[in-house]
């Protein structure tokens, strides 16, 4: 109906049950198996062969007769195949179960990546697992959250950060950091290098594991003090601060070597920050040839030119020229 502009976001629900993430994952994986079978229960190749006194060719839809561990579904769907084949599958969640789901079914992966080494490690994990289960890793796009705070000068951007975060000052940011991470303010030294192990979240906790991983991953790969770390993320997502040029540089930085495939913009304040980003940063990205000036194609799938055949050798197409331009996903906040 909306001609294929839809993306479907599958997150494992945070259930109030005594389930840990790795036991939820098989249900999510089977859920997607069933959804894909239903979306494929109509055969588009047979359309157009229907004689004039028939509305549809009955043999073009078939039951799926899924009998699985969690679901029993006969099908077919009573809605034919959509312009995109099936909606683009977006996935968020970086626990082990989440990565398994991303590898098996995800196409657009929301995540929090705060640095290059952390991003490369995450990408390798997801795409490696995808290869293991027989998927084309080129069919997976890593689009971490991104908070951009733009100023006339870097100083102005820093002050805006303090203002928008509600902490009011750098000291305020540091106090929040100590509180969020359970650090005793009496012994807290904002200029001491932080230890990564201190920030590893518990894999079995029921709340989103992936969010906490961003910081511990960052600290594993970079030696940072709290004063530096508070400027690297906001709301668990990568923070890029500065003038429009500086923000554009940082955006391109992690993209150009393939650490990330694009970003999910998380503007601190709507609509002002969306407008500011669109007016000041997007033109720079366009001038540098990394972001399209026009929508290419009608569907969201057209904008992420995913391979259509899994058998195709993905390695040939991962060279620079074949990579898709920077994708600006719709602003979402999680």
């Amino acid at each position: 109906m909306d001609y294929g502009r839809i993306g479907s976001c599958c997150k494992i629900a945070h259930r109030c049950r005594s389930l840990v993430n790795f036991t939820v994952s098989p249900r999510a994986i089977e859920f997607l198996d069933v959804a894909k079978k239903l979306w494929a229960s109509w055969d588009p190749r047979r359309e157009g062969e229907v004689p004039p006194d028939r509305f549809w060719d009955a043999s073009s839809a078939r039951t799926i007769d899924h009998e699985g561990q969690f679901f029993h579904v006969r099908g077919p769907l009573n809605v034919p195949r959509s312009p995109q084949g099936h909606p683009v599958i977006a996935q968020a969640g970086a626990s082990e179960g989440g990565i398994e789901l991303a590898a098996r079914h995800g196409e657009i992966i929301y995540c929090n990546i705060l640095s290059r080494p952390a991003g490369q490690a995450f990408t390798k994990k997801v795409k490696g697992k995808a290869i293991e289960v027989g998927r084309d890793p080129f069919a997976i796009r890593i689009v971490p959250g991104l908070v951009a705070i733009i100023g006339e000068t870097r100083e102005e951007a820093l002050r805006k950060h303090e203002l928008f975060s509600g902490t009011g000052s750098e000291d305020g940011l540091l106090a929040r950091f100590a509180k969020e991470n359970g650090i005793d303010p009496a012994t807290f030294d904002p200029d001491a290098v932080l230890e990564a192990e201190r920030f590893v979240p518990d894999q079995n906790r029921q709340w989103a594991v992936g969010m906490g991983l961003g910081l511990s991953d960052l600290l594993t790969h970079e030696k940072l003090t709290a004063r530096q770390a508070v400027r690297r993320s906001e709301g668990h997502h990568r923070l890029v601060l500065g003038t429009p040029e500086e923000v554009a540089d940082q955006i391109i930085d992690l993209w150009q070597d393939g650490t990330v495939d694009g970003y999910t913009l998380q503007p601190p304040r709507a609509p002002d920050d969306i407008e500011e980003f669109v007016e000041k940063v997007v033109p720079i990205l366009q001038d540098r040839g990394v972001y399209p000036r026009e929508y290419e194609g009608r569907t969201i799938r057209d904008r992420y030119p995913f391979p259509t055949r899994i058998e195709q050798d993905w390695r040939d197409r991962t060279d620079r020229n074949e990579r898709c331009p920077l994708q600006g996903s719709l602003p979402v906040s999680i």
């Binding site: 006194d53 509305f55 549809w56 060719d57 009955a58 839809a61 006969r74 077919p76 009573n78």
Partner: peptide, 21 residues
């Protein structure tokens, strides 16, 4: 309806009711 309509397929194949939003 939460299924394609339960008529015989000979009738269903001639029916525009088979699929809606």
């Amino acid at each position: 309806h939460l299924a394609v309509l339960n008529m015989p397929v000979e009738a269903l194949k001639r029916s525009h009711t088979v699929t809606s939003f």
